[in-house]
């Protein structure tokens, strides 16, 4: 039931926004076509400006994952996270989530299929995937797009958000399931 409602919400959200923007613009006598072109003109430059940052991140994350270094790193962290009640199976996901959205989604999907969506691991993987964000992607791409080199406290804040998200997912999962 809720799954259906959510599916409908995400199906309708973007068409709704487009209609809202365009009808509101038309009502306020905005030349909608000219306004769209005017705003859209910037899109290309902003997108192209982040290529170096994307390439740097993708290369580093991919070699870390493909070489097997991530599995070793996850295994080293396993006893630490075992202390707070995290099953070792979800560790690669916890390590990967801040680095790469698509890899993390792949790992979460694999966990859900292997262990079943209605098991503790399946639920935990689902909640972790929704809770933490691709912090490093966001940091490098957002700062990179405007040429910021000194990130100041954005890095520790982002990492703290990921850790808090991990703890919060574990806590609520242990509480409910």
């Amino acid at each position: 039931m809720i799954a259906q409602v959510l599916g409908e919400v995400s199906r309708w959200a973007i068409p709704f926004l487009f209609v809202l923007f365009l009808v509101a613009g038309w009502c306020r006598r905005v030349p909608v076509y000219e306004a769209f072109i005017q705003g859209a003109a910037e899109g290309f430059q902003i997108a192209v400006r982040i290529i170096p940052y994307l390439v740097a991140m993708f290369v580093a994350i991919k070699i870390f994952r493909v070489s097997g270094a991530m599995d070793i790193f996850a295994r080293i962290c396993a006893p630490l996270l075992g202390l707070i009640g995290a099953p070792p199976e979800v560790l690669p996901l916890a390590v990967m989530r801040p680095l790469s959205g698509s890899s993390a989604l792949g790992l979460a999907t694999e966990l859900i299929h292997t262990h079943g969506p209605d098991t503790f691991i399946g639920r935990l993987a689902s909640i972790m995937q929704g809770t933490t964000d691709t912090t490093f992607f966001v940091l490098t791409v957002y700062f990179g797009s405007v040429g910021i080199r000194r990130f100041r406290h954005a890095v520790p804040l982002g990492l703290m958000a990921d850790l808090t998200g991990l703890f919060a997912s574990l806590f609520i999962c242990h509480l409910l399931f």
Binding site: G122, R123, S126, Q129, G130, T131
Partner: peptide
Amino acid sequence: VPATIVGVRVAAGSANAAEIVGPTLFAT
């Protein structure tokens, strides 16, 4: 609306794919 992961759960044959919506909202 964690639509992507709910979709993954539906595809994996979950009995209650949307049960993670509340917990996700709490954790986030």
